[in-house]
């Protein structure tokens, strides 16, 4: 089996597709959406893979999970991210029983919810450890300094450094000006261009902008 076959077999099984794939001599790394983890596990089962371990990394706003598998002596790393707000991923224990302890360990140390895990509960910490304080989980923290978050949020949502206040709109009208200047936030097409530009520059990801809520992700 060559490296590309593994990537292709995962691609064929995963609805959301493989977000990124790299391969080295004895290692293949694929990045997937967290909702596809069970489909990837199915694909690897068909390749007679062996589950090895899950490594979790706290990224501030998200937790990255790196599932390690062995397929015919090659290391397959499946990378995925879950947001701290959602904090949940499907279990693969029913497909690969060896994942039971690894999921329990990540759950206990990082506070992640592996939904439908058959035997959740205490694993490595002392029994009196408070469950609401997973020791390796850090407080929610974005990349941008907190004092600049309002500017970043306004830039993302309106294209301006601050939103136009109703008071200033009234003052403008009293002074004989239109309530708003002809800026991007008064024109849907222009604002769409600004948003596309932000996405292209990947500032939305860096700032942790939630497009549905129109806000930065916060603790």
């Amino acid at each position: 089996m060559n490296k590309n076959e593994v990537i292709e077999s995962i691609k064929n099984k995963v609805e959301g597709g493989v977000l990124e794939a790299t391969s080295q001599e004895r290692k293949i790394s694929v990045t997937i959406d967290a909702s596809d983890i069970r489909q990837v596990a199915y694909a690897l089962l068909e390749r007679r893979s062996r589950f090895m371990i899950i490594a979790a990394v706290d990224l501030g706003m998200d937790i990255e999970l790196l599932y390690h598998f062995d397929v015919e002596g090659k290391l397959i790393v499946v990378r995925t991210k879950i947001s701290k707000e959602q904090n949940q991923i499907d279990t693969i224990v029913d497909l690969m029983p060896a994942a039971e302890w690894a999921e329990k360990e990540s759950a206990e140390l990082f506070g992640i919810n592996f939904s439908a895990h058959p035997k959740p509960g205490h694993f490595v910490l002392s029994k009196d450890w408070p469950s609401e304080k997973p020791p390796l989980r850090e407080p929610f923290k974005g990349v941008l300094p907190e004092q600049f978050c309002p500017v970043a949020e306004s830039l993302m949502s309106t294209g301006m450094t601050a939103p136009m206040s109703p008071l200033m709109q009234r003052k403008r009208q009293e002074a004989g000006l239109p309530p708003s200047p002809p800026a991007s936030f008064v024109n849907a097409k222009s604002l769409g261009e600004v948003h596309e530009a932000m996405k292209g520059a990947e500032f939305d990801k860096k700032a942790g902008y939630d497009w549905k809520k129109g806000k930065l992700r916060r603790a």
Binding site: F148, L155, M160, T161, P182, S184, V194
Partner: peptide, 14 residues
């Protein structure tokens, strides 16, 4: 349809 320039200190650092 213009946007913020964007500002030469904070936005550039962001």
């Amino acid at each position: 349809g213009y946007s913020c320039c964007p500002d030469s200190v904070v936005a550039r650092l962001l």
